[in-house]
Each structure stands twice: as structure tokens, then as C-alpha cells.
């Protein structure tokens, strides 16, 4: 039964995506909507991304210092490990898990409310492809702005590591810089961005799917938001595993 329901849900998702991924009816309105979504979904998320990344960068630095400090280990290892964690996992996967909570629930409740108040029916009656009109700008906007969020997250994380080193004196800036630069591989940044773009698609499309298919009232909108965040998180973790395997081979 669970398998049947999952296949049915996936089929409905694909049918919706077929309606979403078509050329917009009016490009001018599409770009206007997309700019609005870039602001709503992306720019409004910058403070939380910076805040979380800064503190996580600091905490990773402290943990590394406490747990791997040994006379046998070079001092720059702390900076090196901090950089690798931030670049490879935190700034893409963990940051997108956080965004799934913030952006995903926002999208589901917005579209779900439009559904239960018949605004989507109103669009359909007018002859507007409501799925394309409402969902495509959100997908495009988050996919376009997520690389910037990833880079901001990386910078804030490194900034956090520096700050904790400077203010607590657990390590020198010189050691941290050496560690951050040690065997730097630019591809890791691209990997992180590619993964984040894929996760952005998952967050926006899955959250929109749950919102678009709400039936009932405000309670159902709330349930759909919760389901959307859970599904987005599970799919991000699963696709993280697949993408990491593909990109890091």
C-alpha cells in the first residue's frame, strides 16, 4: 500500500512538472515574478544563511581543535578539516536542509492558501496555466540565487572559524590560513554549487507540489507544509548521497 501510494504520488508529481516546465505565457510577467521570488526566497534568506554558517564555522573549528589536536598532527589540520567540512557538506547539503524548512514551508503554505481560497481556480478559469505561472518562477529563482547563498555560506563559515580563533586564542590566524589553503581543490566549490542547484530544484518543486494539491482548509495547508519539509529533507539527503558519489569519483 505504501509503495503504491508512493508511486502514485511520484506520478502526480511528474504530471505537475510536465505542466510547470513549459514556456511561460508572458515572458515579461514571468521575469517580473522571478525577480520577486529571487527577493522573497533568496535575498530574504541571506541573514539566516550568514548567521547559521558563521556559528557552525566557529563550532566546527572548536570541535576540530578539541578532538584532533595531537603532537603528531600538524597545527594547520584544524583549518584544513574545517574548510573541507564547510565546502563539501555544510554549505550545500546542510544549508539546503535549513532552507527546506524556511523556504519549503513558505512555498507550500503560499500555494496551498491560494488553492483553498480558489485563487488557483480563478487563474485556470482565465486560461492561465496556473502550475507554470506559480511554480516555474519559484524554481528558476531559487536555482539562480542558490550559488550566491552557497558562496556566502562558505565565506561566513570561514569567517566564523577565524573569529573564534582570534577571540578565544585557540589557534593562530597563520595556522588557520595555512590549513584553509592546504591542497585546495577548486572543484569542491563547484561540486557544492552543483549539489545546491539540484537541492534548490527539489525544495521548490516538491514544496510547490504539496501546496498545489492541498484539498480542504487551513489544517490541510499546515499538514501539507509539514509533509513538504519532511519530503524535501529526505530527498535532499538521498540525492546528496547520489550526487556526492557521482561528483567526487
Amino acid at each position: 500500500m505504501f509503495l503504491f501510494d508512493s508511486v502514485k504520488t511520484f506520478g502526480s508529481y511528474l504530471i505537475l512538472m510536465k505542466r510547470v516546465i513549459t514556456p511561460p505565457q508572458r515572458w515579461r510577467i514571468f521575469f517580473r515574478q522571478m525577480m520577486h521570488e529571487v527577493y522573497q526566497l533568496g535575498v530574504n534568506s541571506i541573514p539566516i544563511v550568514l548567521l547559521i554558517s558563521f556559528f557552525i564555522g566557529a563550532v566546527i573549528c572548536i570541535q576540530m581543535k578539541l578532538n584532533i589536536e595531537s603532537p603528531w598532527m600538524p597545527k594547520f589540520v584544524v583549518g584544513y578539516a574545517t574548510r573541507e567540512i564547510l565546502l563539501l557538506e555544510f554549505s550545500s547539503s546542510i544549508m539546503c536542509l535549513i532552507l527546506a524548512g524556511k523556504v519549503g514551508s513558505n512555498i507550500t503554505s503560499e500555494i496551498g492558501t491560494m488553492r483553498v481560497t480558489q485563487q488557483i481556480d480563478a487563474l485556470e478559469i482565465m486560461g492561465v496555466n496556473s502550475a507554470n505561472f506559480l511554480i516555474l518562477p519559484k524554481i528558476s529563482a531559487l536555482m539562480a540565487i542558490i550559488p550566491i547563498l552557497v558562496v556566502f555560506s562558505m565565506a561566513a563559515g570561514v569567517g566564523g572559524a577565524f573569529a573564534i580563533g582570534k577571540f578565544t586564542g585557540i589557534m593562530t590566524a597563520q595556522d588557520l590560513i595555512v590549513g584553509l589553503q592546504y591542497e585546495f581543490n577548486q572543484w569542491y566549490i563547484w561540486c557544492s554549487i552543483i549539489k545546491a542547484i539540484a537541492f534548490a530544484f527539489i525544495i521548490t518543486s516538491v514544496a510547490s507540489f504539496y501546496g498545489y494539491n492541498v484539498k480542504g482548509g487551513s489544517i490541510e495547508v499546515g499538514k501539507a507544509s509539514t509533509n513538504a519539509v519532511v519530503s524535501c529533507s529526505a530527498l535532499i539527503l538521498f540525492s546528496d548521497m547520489v550526487l556526492t558519489q557521482l561528483l567526487m569519483q
Binding site: 491560494m114 481560497t117 485563487q119 481556480d121 480563478a122 485556470e124 478559469i125 482565465m126 486560461g127 496555466n129
Partner: peptide, 20 residues
């Protein structure tokens, strides 16, 4: 053709359904 014809239709919903 149906999408084009929908432009000839106006509808007033029970709760107005204005875009918020």
C-alpha cells in the same frame, strides 16, 4: 482552443478569489 476560449469567460467566485 479551450485556453483561448477561456478568455471569453469571466467568473465571480464565492469568496471573490482576488490575488492577495
Amino acid at each position: 482552443e479551450a485556453a483561448k476560449m477561456r478568455q471569453e469567460i469571466g467568473m465571480l467566485f464565492q469568496n471573490a478569489a482576488l490575488f492577495d
